[in-house]
Design a protein around this nucleic acid. Structure first.
Lengths: 205, 205
DNA sequence: AAATAATATGACAATCTTGTCATATGACAT
DNA sequence: ATGTCATATGACAAGATTGTCATATTATTT
């Protein structure tokens, strides 16, 4: 938790520091991110930083919390908008929302990406704290199982993780390279269809 | 390319250095890996290292090449063993072979993992050099399309990448955490079945 | 044995990192 | 104005990193 000295700061300065932190953690992984770089971009002295935060971990956890709050709101909207939607369309809607969100706050998405790629002990511990999105999806899967839409013989958690793995893989790949999101939604639709219907030849509908 | 001074070294010493390099690059990513650590474990002086290799990149590329040679042999066996096998069983056989390989040379697998997680410019450039395995799988998919086993309306490359993404995700995750491979094959079978048949409810066979 | 060539070595410079701390500056109440 | 308290600062220590280089040691050839 940041110290009071940070919270007492004028809004503008807090924002400056926060922005500098986001920019750095979007570029580099936790262990590679440099406090020197952050204080430089924020226009504060190194000494000040340690008067605001205990250390790098402190800042990181705080930043993650703030970003998490925003992200959760995006995800929650899904469940609200159409409670009767099946898992597949709900998932796609969520991707859509995430894309819009990523477009307005691209750095937030990159921070999440860096975290995804980070296997350090510290990050490993942190992960899984804010898995509310995961839970929500799992519930959707289970509802669809009861509705007879999804096969009961496949583990719900595995299903959610498959979707998660695919999205992470393709999104990080494309976004990291191009920085753009064109065709992202179409790609997501293709992937959902693959996992939904399978790739083997079936009797036609 | 390593200098002649390296190749002229007695086999035992070369092996010692190579082993130390593998161990380091299995633990850390390229940018985080330390030459100091390598020379310490190899029992050579820092000065000697730079007499053998131009720099860290030199060593890394060399090591990757050596590992790649071994890996390719494992993959190639798949195509040879049963030329009539469909993509799914061929893929599973490949996983099986990879698991056996990873069990005898676990560090090699970890090196590949670290590389997978590395998005630095240097590694990004290096990636894709040895994509022979990828090509082989793509050919198998296309053969199965013609045989009427796989839907023609899905891009072959996408299919291969989906499999690749899933395996990478679940394997790195499990292997990194536990270091063990129990249940790995069963997990692979589950995943293949998901992508093969889909998760939505179909008419029973 | 002597001269020459190849290799081994660790000290060194230069450059980064984090976290501490004594001091300076500012704000605010008395 | 004066005293008190909160904050800002950059120098500093301690620890990494890579790549270089002059020197010492060993091997080989004459």
């Amino acid at each position: 938790m940041p110290k009071n000295t940070y919270f007492n700061l004028p809004q503008a300065k807090k924002a400056r520091i926060f922005k500098a932190a986001v920019e750095e953690f979007a570029k580099k992984r936790f262990s590679e991110a440099s406090i020197n770089q952050i204080v430089k971009n924020a226009g504060i002295s190194r000494g000040s930083f340690y008067q605001y935060f205990n250390d790098k971990e402190d800042l990181y956890i705080y930043m993650l919390g703030e970003i998490g709050k925003e992200k959760l709101e995006v995800i929650k909207k899904v469940g609200i908008l159409n409670p009767e939607a099946d898992f597949f369309s709900a998932f796609l809607y969520m991707i859509k929302a995430a894309l819009v969100w990523a477009e307005t706050k691209p750095l937030y998405g990159q921070v999440a990406m860096q975290m995804e790629l980070d296997q350090s002990d510290f990050i490993e511990k942190l992960r899984g704290l804010s898995d509310e999105g995961f839970l929500l999806l799992k519930q959707l899967v289970e509802k669809d199982k009861k509705r007879g839409l999804i096969r009961e013989d496949i583990d719900s958690e595995l299903i959610v993780e498959v979707f998660n793995a695919l999205m992470t893989h393709f999104f990080t790949k494309k976004m990291y390279r191009s920085g753009q999101h064109d065709g992202m939604l179409e790609l997501a639709e293709k992937l959902v269809r693959i996992v939904k219907e399978g790739i083997s030849v079936q009797r036609k509908k």
